[in-house]
Write a protein that binds this DNA or RNA. Sequence first.
DNA 1: TCAAAAGTGTTGCGATTACACCCATGA
DNA 2: TCATGGGTGTAATCGCAACACTTTTGA
Lengths: 212, 212
Amino acid sequence: MFGFDGKELKILLIERNEEPFKDWWALPGNIVGPDESLDQSASRILYELTGLRGIFMEQYYAFGDPHRHPQGRVITLAYYALIRLGGDKELRPISTYAKRANWLPITDLPKLAFDHQKIYDKGLEKIKRRIKHQPIAFELLPEKFTLTQLQHVYELVLGKKLDKRNFRKKIVSFGVLKELDEKQKGVSYRAATLYRFDKRKYAKLFGKEISF
Amino acid sequence: MFGFDGKELKILLIERNEEPFKDWWALPGNIVGPDESLDQSASRILYELTGLRGIFMEQYYAFGDPHRHPQGRVITLAYYALIRLGGDKELRPISTYAKRANWLPITDLPKLAFDHQKIYDKGLEKIKRRIKHQPIAFELLPEKFTLTQLQHVYELVLGKKLDKRNFRKKIVSFGVLKELDEKQKGVSYRAATLYRFDKRKYAKLFGKEISF
DNA sequence: TCAAAAGTGTTGCGATTACACCCATGA
DNA sequence: TCATGGGTGTAATCGCAACACTTTTGA
């Protein structure tokens, strides 16, 4: 679960309460129910941990080394999720099977239990590729956002600085943003125009390649 | 399993011998062994069906709808494989659990059992994306090949015609092909120069984006 | 000599990059 | 009035697409 709070990209980690890897940080996960699809299962597990529904998720890889769990065979079907943090609704876990859960910035992650570092790496890699061709950045932003915020998301995910003017020209040229009549509020500098992602216009582009 | 025989792109299908979907064509598959990694399992299953080892394979998606198999829960971890067909070594199945297995051209596929059409579609889609950025086309060709053969592979996978001059310019400009001193033999027209994929040069490009 | 595919360059256009200054706002 | 980020245009370069004819070979 990747979250963006307006400043940093973070992931949700849980501190394990049991052996093996007791007291280590780990990626959240759980067991697929007997009557769930994999997508449903991922949504349920996310919901139990955050209280959130309707979150964007995508399956990206299955990890199945026979020795990845010391106590027996576990195959993990990995999903990433993209979440707007720090908005109106705060996260309220429905259940936790761990000591605690914490959003930690990806720039400063602890050692992870099992092969979770590998799972995380592959997930981030997937998002990097996806964000260049699919409008997933908006999943990390509030419904109304400024172009600078959007650029910030791209920079954090891709791990590099982008040119402001070129970014704006390009992203606007895709024609999937709707400029609002509204301005940013509560900032002590010139207020930026707010934009909204226009799903209709995006749907019309279907089949065409967007490339960043 | 995608195969290329110099003319067509084909996939290996098996004709089922058991209910459900008796007599239907299905994608080959089998059960992950208790002590295998997923990659090992995929390689083994391919080997049992074709007698081939060292084939390029990549995992691409997990299918887990609870009702996809009428008799109980089955989660399929899908891999695609890329195979050069009709070369020196003929395929000799080590075992078959089906009536028969056949390479059928993807332009004319029968109805497939279970949700295998979906699995196939997603696999082809993955290959289409991959071939634009990774040198996987060479897995479908003999070690020495002509540029026209290479172009042919791209056209079949992408499902569209490409311009000969532009294709050659671009593919040569990547600098991952080694031009050999050898020419095609046994053709009744001007013999084409043979090329080889140069893994070393490709390794040096690492990190750089190739884009088709 | 015919058929079949090999091989080869140029031009126009659109996209991408690099780059710097003034503007609006609240503190 | 100062600090902070908002907002804007142009020129040079690069990459991509479109396009047709000559060459080689074996039958």
